[in-house]
Design a binder for these strands. Structure first.
Lengths: 248, 248
DNA sequence: TTCGTACGTTGTATATTGTACAACGTACGA
DNA sequence: TCGTACGTTGTACAATATACAACGTACGAA
């Protein structure tokens, strides 16, 4: 019952800021948190986040699975670290031009990040933990909104709104790709398989507008859902929406 | 090698439209797909989607786990059915007023759905499978966009954009609540635990804007992240953004 | 220099998950 | 009436995160 020998789990924040008290006695660590996180990111990039299991990652690093728990308290914390590392590394276009150009650049930087690391869109929460990467990102992105006459709270609201749009757009794009890949059917095969039933069931009496618009949308985009188009359309709308706030 | 006795797995679309050919011989089924789906929805509402396991759901229905696979080919299909059922049942405010009021009503109906069934926001893809519920929903929502001078493709784009916003807002709200509940810390406890480190690490030299704006935002909302505020702010922006398209 | 102990490493083990497979029995159609 | 298609279910398996304890390393005090 002696509480003296308790080794408290490192906090997520301490981990993010690499503020863990370094060990004294015992064997030297043969890895670093950064190496573990980098390996996890590489694995996720190559094979998706679902391939990042403790076993697999350990194997990739030439260690036993349980070893990783010395570096990271659990898998959730690992993912948080992966994300913050991405945020730290990501491209930050130097701000210039009108506020609209500056915000568009912020949006495109984020979208590019998520397109290169599709797993990140799904993993990233609306309010990421305050790691160094996230803070640097927040600082940079807020600067695109300075000097526009917005209050501090409005600046945060506007940025959160913009980033949520981008994250969702990227998430939808990645998911749509993943579904296509998983089904193993291209569009034509899908229609051959499901067309007859749909034709029977989608009568224009019950769903006149839906059938008309759905068909038009389907034909306009080469796939059933064209992610890039949705992003461009949404970005324009989002900036228009912010214009109503900024230029009021 | 006789292919005559193959019982092909029922297609997801067939399942959604309840178009499966009813069985002839053999014992009578003691449940229906709808009962299974309804039980799953109830379970998810009460204890979250992660509580909906095959074993648990079977127990709830007084059956052996594997029995469920007679009604549903797998868990993915079950979730799709749960969602479509929600869409079928959901409130659809009768359209009236300006286009802005009509679209706001669509957004609020969706938001209300996701707030009552928080698991649905996370589970629902950007393009849900074309079940009867989804079709009825699509038809109803498109009508709020008719007669505004938009092309068919633009109508679909605009609706997709609006719905993605609502889904994300609801998702973020649910996630923020879940995290709060999971951590078991209220805001004060969190600050007591993490404040000292943050104070050390967030120096105003590196992150001047971030610290200033972050503090203002944190104080403005009673919690670190106020979901309802984000929804109202975002809805206004989203409608403003669509206004630029509609009233051009 | 020595030696106790804190701590890194790892093998084993457990509780959960989705679902494949085969046995069993029911009730329809010939 | 009876064969067989199909609903039901027990058992089984692979994969997950991670708890626990054994083992050995190397630091810090003697």
């Amino acid at each position: 019952m002696t509480a003296a020998t308790e080794t408290p789990k490192p906090n997520l924040l301490e981990l993010l800021w690499r503020a863990a008290p370094e060990a004294g006695r015992g064997p030297r660590k043969k890895l670093t948190v950064d190496e573990v996180v980098a390996a996890a990111i590489g694995l996720a990039d190559a094979e998706g986040l679902e391939a990042v299991t403790v076993r697999r990652l350990a194997q990739e690093l030439g260690k036993a699975p349980m070893t990783l728990y010395t570096y990271v308290p659990g898998k959730n914390e690992l993912v948080a670290l992966m994300l913050d590392t991405l945020f730290e590394r990501m491209e930050r276009t130097a701000p210039h031009g009108s506020w609209r150009e500056r915000l568009a650049a912020v949006a495109r930087d984020n979208y590019a990040l998520y397109r290169v690391h599709p797993w990140a869109a799904a993993a990233s929460p609306s309010r990421p933990p305050l790691g160094p990467g996230q803070c640097a990102k927040y600082e940079h992105e807020l600067r695109a909104l300075e000097g526009l006459g917005l209050g501090d709270v409005e600046m945060d609201d506007a940025l959160t709104y913009l980033l949520a749009f981008v994250r969702t757009a990227a998430q939808d794009a990645a998911q749509s790709e993943a579904e296509r890949a998983a089904s193993g059917m291209d569009d034509q095969e899908w229609w051959e398989a499901n067309g007859p039933l749909l034709a029977k069931v989608l009568d224009t009496e019950r769903f006149p507008t839906a059938v008309r618009v759905g068909q038009a949308a389907g034909e306009a985009h080469d796939a059933a859902y064209n992610a890039e188009h949705a992003f461009e359309f949404g970005l324009a709308r989002t900036l228009d929406g912010l214009a109503a706030l900024i230029e009021r």
